[in-house]
Design a protein around this nucleic acid. Structure first.
Length: 478
RNA sequence: GGCCACGUGGCGGAGUGGUGACGCAGCGGACUGCAAAUCCGUUUACCCCGGUUCGAGUCCGGGCGUGGCCUCCA
């Protein structure tokens, strides 16, 4: 199966050819830990989790290395900790824990899920604060090679020292300088030069360095951590499109200059942006949707994940309540088939149509369409053998996109929880049971007038009935 | 202001030079006492204006709209 990926570097869909098929390496920019992850933060985590799963499927579980960092030193963190009058490590550790809880609920693979104790880990979650020496070493190397300079306690990268600076974001220095709107710090040689290291006040977190006590600039951590865990040159670098400039451009500049011009990441993947109910998600509009809020409200992680994957990763998403509900109902179609398992699986192979869809630049919406088509191949009137094989393929295919845990899934219950809250409406279950018994009795004597009256009465109480072969069941109407 | 994306049926959302993806909703049918659920079938589309082509949602140019980056925010 050929994997094709859209490479931001070339702005084309390309056939993916790893440097070393026995060790495919991917780096993704992770969160800055100072607050709950919002739905926009969750997107790259989910998208690249699917890619990680696909790579493991295509190249073998032992032949993929994935690094997704935690940024735990940053001015936003410093400011938040100061606001809340708490220790920085306290804030970053708690936020990291919350982040892990959230994404685990979204069905995202965690290092402990894939790493074997004692073996080389295939999933690393490096922290910036644990790589300060590597950052300092890289900065020293950049100074020594004439790409960086020290000024007033800062170390800055000289963008004019790299001929092809701007190649990833496709901007020229002239354009950027013409379009710049900010005042330039007086110690900068060029207005686009960016900080590699900056001095820290006594109160701020800092590390001793050749340039005094200070802390790293924003971009250097990813260059240092990817080098430490994936090497100077690796296959895939992922992140949100918003990071393209300046963050990723500057990573390229730092790494390639520190590595004697050796190419940095070979394939750059960027996920699209997200809006909420048609508006930009912003603090000023007060429409930030955190993963935690959605989970607390009663949206299962699988629904959030599925809603995300229904849109191609490069497209913008308009995140809406209706979209979530649609996703919840659609997921029921698959859960209907996968929930009851009795037979031992004979294979863990997903359907080739789903692998093919994912292999075409991670086309998850097409993969979902293929899942529906797969269900149609076995749903009604087929032999048990065909059905069994189909269900197995469906289950394996869902697992490939991280939706393998649908046992007990109940869209109606979800809808009811969302509508009425976790405690639900006040329902007198004994009374409901009594009415249903009365109705059943009426139906037995073919007194359908009375039977329908009772059903109407229950409907007014917010109860919907289902008459099945094994009797009548009820649920909260939505 | 500069640079970059995106704009598909009532809604969501793939595709991207030549047979109407797929899902929801709607409509018709099966099932059901009637419904619900489930299953089967099915109507509706490519922002606007030019151009290229035998043929354009699909390529090119212009316009409009939305969004992103350039500046802390993903």
């Amino acid at each position: 199966m050929t994997l094709k990926l859209y490479n931001t570097l070339t702005r084309k869909k390309e056939v993916f050819e790893p440097q070393d098929a026995s060790n495919v390496r991917m780096y993704v920019c992770g969160p800055t830990v100072y607050d709950y992850a919002h739905i926009g933060n969750a997107r790259p985590v989910i998208v690249f989790d699917v890619l990680f799963r696909l790579l493991r499927h295509l190249y073998g579980e032992d032949h993929v290395t994935y690094a997704r960092n935690i940024t735990d030193v940053d001015d936003k963190i410093i400011a938040r900790a100061a606001d809340e009058d708490r220790a920085i490590s306290d804030l970053t550790e708690e936020t990291t824990r919350q982040f892990h809880d959230d994404i685990r609920a979204l069905g995202v693979l965690m290092p402990e899920d894939v790493n074997t104790p004692g073996a080389t880990p295939s999933f690393i979650e490096p922290k910036a604060t644990e790589h300060i020496p590597q950052m300092i070493a890289m900065i020293e190397c950049l100074i020594a090679s004439g790409h960086a300079y020290e000024a007033e306690g800062h170390v800055l990268f000289d963008v004019t020292s790299k001929d092809d600076y701007g190649k990833l974001a496709r901007r020229s220095l002239d354009e950027m300088e013409a379009g710049a709107r900010v005042e330039v710090a007086p110690y900068k040689k060029g207005q686009m030069d960016f900080v590699l290291w900056k001095p820290s006040l006594a109160k701020q977190p800092g590390w001793e360095s050749p340039w005094g006590r200070g802390r790293p600039g924003w971009h250097i951590e990813c260059s240092a951590m990817s080098e430490a865990h994936l090497g100077e040159s690796f296959d895939i670098h992922g992140g949100g499109i918003d990071l393209l400039f300046p963050h990723h451009e500057n990573e390229v500049a730092q790494s390639e200059c520190a590595h004697g011009g050796k190419p940095f990441a070979r394939y750059w993947l960027h996920n699209g942006f997200l809006q909420v109910e048609g508006e930009k998600m912003s603090k000023s509009l007060g429409n930030f949707v955190t993963v935690r809020e959605l989970l607390d409200k009663g949206w299962p992680g699988e629904v959030i994940r599925f809603a995300m994957l229904k849109t191609h990763y490069r497209q913008p998403i308009n995140w809406t309540q209706k979209g979530l509900m649609d996703a919840a109902l659609e997921l029921q179609t698959f859960a209907n088939w996968t929930s009851d398992e009795d037979d031992e699986p004979t294979s863990d192979e997903p359907a080739s149509s789903i692998v093919a869809a994912l292999s075409d630049d991670l086309n998850t919406p097409l993969a979902v369409a293929e899942l529906h088509k797969l269900v149609k191949t076995f749903s009604p009137g087929h032999s048990d053998e065909v059905k069994q094989k189909g269900i197995e393929q469906l289950r394996n295919s869902l697992r490939l996109i991280g939706l393998g845990e649908l046992d007990g899934y109940d869209a109606n219950k979800i809808a009811s929880t969302i509508t009425y809250g976790r405690d639900g409406p006040q329902i007198d279950e004994a009374r409901v049971g009594q009415l249903i018994a009365e109705r059943t009795a009426a139906r037995k004597t073919k007194d359908f007038k009375k039977s329908d009256e009772i059903r109407d009465q229950l409907a007014e109480m917010g109860i919907a009935l289902k008459d099945g072969p094994d009797g009548t069941t009820w649920e909260v109407a939505r």
